[in-house]
Structures are given as C-alpha cells and as structure tokens.
C-alpha cells in the first residue's frame, strides 16, 4: 500500500511536468490548429538555458527558472514569426512538416552547439527527503508540484479572466470575427506561443533538477507523451491538458512499478488509444468546446 502511494506521488510530480508541456501543445493547437512538433524541443532548450544560467552565470534557482521561461518565450515567438506565420493560409500538412523541420533544427542545432553528451545538472534545490512512515517525498518533488500548480493557476486566471485571455479565446474561436472586434490577431497568436513556450521552459528546468541530467534529444519522448496527454484531455482545452498530463504521469509511474518499466511507454500510448476509442474528443472534449 505504501508502495502504491509512493508511486502516486512520483507519478504526480512527473505528471505535472507533462501537464506543463501539454499546455503549450494545447494552447498552440487551440489558436492556430497546429500540432507544434517542435514543442518538446523548446522544453529541451529551456533545460539548457537553465543549465547555463546556473553553471556559467551561477544563478540560484528562481532567477534561472525565470530566465529559462523568458528565453523559451522569446524562442517560441521567433519560431512562430519565422516558420509558421508565413504559412498562415497554407494547408495544415505544410505547417506540420515545417514543425517537424523546426524540431530537427533545434535538436541537431543543440547537438552541434553542445555535443550530444549528456550534462549533469547542478543541484539547485535541497536534496532533503521527508519520510512519512515509509512514504518518501523529496523537496524537489514538492517544488515541482508547487511550481507547476502555481503556473497552472496563473494560466487559468489569465485565460479566463483577463482581457488578453478573452482575446485568446476569441481568436481561437473565430479569427475574422476577432479582427472585427479590433483584436490584433497576429499579436495574440504570438503571445500564445510565448506563453506555451515559457511553460515548456519551466518544465525543462524542473526536469533537469529532478533527473540531474539533460541532453539535446531529451525533448523527444516527453514531447510525445505531453502531446498524448493533451489529446487525452481534449486537445485545445486548457484544463484537459492538466488532467491529461497528470494521468499520464501517474499511469507511467504505476506501470513501471507494478508491471515493468520496459512497457511504460507502450502503456502511455495504449491509454491514448483506449480513451480515444471511448471518447474521441478527449476526456474533457466536447464538440462545441472552445479551443484554448
């Protein structure tokens, strides 16, 4: 029983990281109907920015964290401006192939710049562990959970209650009608990319801290799983990405503990297929649901 709760805790920490990445997928999909395959690599870049901030610039956790988020926000906007914006009226498949290209560019650009060698992440947080009668919770896990939660609450407030958030939802629903309200659609798309990418940057640094190890191809698998999480929750729906991410993390932790860690990735995709068979629009998806 303790083992089960232990795996739940591990799964929730992992899942909140998936959720952060999944949010970016879902927001970008919501606003321009693009599966941004480069998103996992933005998360990787976030981890490397954090690495530099802490090793070269010797910054402590929070400044490094903000730097990773800001750096990725800018990166996301640049990618949108250069790679996706010129294709605003192109067929979806063109956009998708471009996204895959951007993904390779980031991965191999980073390999070129940093070598494929994995790097050891510095210890930014205390390694202390709490022991609740056998249940072990590390400070890092608590940190990941709290930070992810705070970011998700902030995002929710922003999307639901601010003028910028309302503009995002309007653009997501109908770009022309939004433009007729005086909304600058291009800039809304741009800051949506910035937001989603900043969350991925945050996740990148958190993962670096959690696993102590980063490399230029680290974004591929979490990127895929976060994408699965986003689809699971209902792509384009913000709370869906949160639920989907947590579910993925927990499922993965439970499967590796009680079945076999070899199968944990297979399980991730099995879950996707089963849920989509039952609910094609995702867990929180409705046909008429807004897409941001």
């Amino acid at each position: 029983m303790v083992e089960f709760f232990q795996q739940m805790i591990n799964g929730i920490s992992l899942g909140s990281i998936y959720a952060l990445i999944a949010l970016g997928y879902t927001m970008v999909y919501g606003i321009i109907r693009l599966i941004n395959f480069a998103h996992g690599d933005i998360y990787m870049v976030g981890a490397f920015i954090g690495f530099f901030a802490t090793t070269v610039l010797k910054l402590p956790f929070f400044p490094a964290f903000l730097m990773a988020m800001a750096g990725c926000a800018v990166l996301g906007m640049i990618i949108e401006r250069i790679a996706y914006k010129p294709l605003r009226h192109a067929p979806t498949i063109t956009l998708l192939i471009t996204a895959i290209g951007v993904s390779f560019l980031l991965e191999y650009g980073m390999i070129w710049a940093m070598t494929p060698q994995p790097r050891a992440y510095p210890n930014l947080l205390p390694t202390y562990q709490f022991n609740f009668s056998g249940l072990i919770v590390s400070v890092q896990q608590l940190f990941i959970l709290v930070v992810a939660l705070v970011l998700m609450v902030l995002l929710h407030v922003l999307v639901q209650y601010t003028k910028a958030g309302k503009a995002m939802r309007a653009v997501s629903y109908d770009k022309e009608a939004a433009a007729l309200m005086g909304i600058n659609v291009d800039s809304v798309i741009s800051y949506t990319f910035a937001l989603g990418s900043a969350l991925a940057g945050a996740a990148g640094l958190l993962v670096g801290v959690y696993y102590n190890r980063i490399d230029p191809l680290m974004g591929i698998m979490p990127g895929l799983k976060a994408f699965v999480a986003a689809v699971l929750g209902g792509i384009g729906i913000v709370p869906g990405a949160m639920v989907g991410g947590l579910l993925m993390g927990v499922a993965e932790a439970l499967v590796s503990a009680f079945l076999s860690s070899t199968y944990r990735d297979a399980v991730a995709f099995a879950i996707l297929i089963i849920i989509l068979l039952i609910k094609p629009a995702g867990l929180l998806g409705k046909k008429t649901q807004e897409k941001v």
Partner: peptide, 28 residues
C-alpha cells in the same frame, strides 16, 4: 490598413451570419 486598425478608426462590421463567440458568455 489591417482589420483591427480599421475598427480603431471607427468603422465596425456586423458580419454575415453573426459570427458571435458561441463559446463565451453574452457579457464577454
């Protein structure tokens, strides 16, 4: 001028088929 600037200039269109934001409340 881009569409949003034209609205700023004081010219607004109620488009064919209404194009309201069905997902948002009347107030929003």
């Amino acid at each position: 001028l881009p569409a949003h600037k034209i609205v700023e200039a004081g010219l607004c269109q109620v488009p064919e088929g209404r194009r309201i934001f069905a997902n948002l409340t009347v107030q929003t």
